[in-house]
């Protein structure tokens, strides 16, 4: 399966980006073969509004089954939910650590957004 991790860079060693919609990159990690692909999220980063749901759309298009990020707002959360994509919120420092934590079952699936909407 593919996991989308919000990242501040293009490598597995990159710091995890705590923001979902306005993360600088997404790393799409394939758990079957431990390969990954990178998506530059810059267009969303600078969007006036709707960054969270655009990121959800991007994650869905990449066929990810789960998202690991720091925080998630209500609109992004409802979009991910509609797409059947599980959300895991974590405090891990790097993308790699977050993936390891997920693999070891240490991350709990979020049941709701942990941030309120903003404009």
């Amino acid at each position: 399966m593919i996991i989308a991790v919000s990242s501040q860079g293009q490598e597995l060693k990159s710091p995890l980006d705590p923001r979902f919609g306005r993360a600088t990159h997404f790393i799409f990690y394939n758990t079957e073969n431990d390969s990954f692909a990178v998506l530059n999220n810059e267009p969303n980063l600078n969007a006036a509004q709707g960054a969270g749901i655009q990121a959800a759309q991007a994650v869905s298009r990449a066929k990810a089954a789960a998202v690991i990020t720091g925080h998630c707002g209500p609109k992004a959360f409802s979009a991910l939910q509609a797409g059947g994509i599980a959300v895991y919120l974590c405090k891990e420092n790097t993308v790699e650590e977050a993936i390891q934590a997920y693999k070891k079952g240490r991350l709990e699936q979020a049941e709701e957004a942990d941030r309120s909407g903003h404009w």
Binding site: A48, Q49, G50, A51, Q57, S60, R61, A82, G83
Partner: peptide
């Protein structure tokens, strides 16, 4: 341009 619509879950 206001990002109000997305394509998700085939809808």
């Amino acid at each position: 341009r206001f990002n109000s619509l997305i394509w998700i879950a085939d809808k």
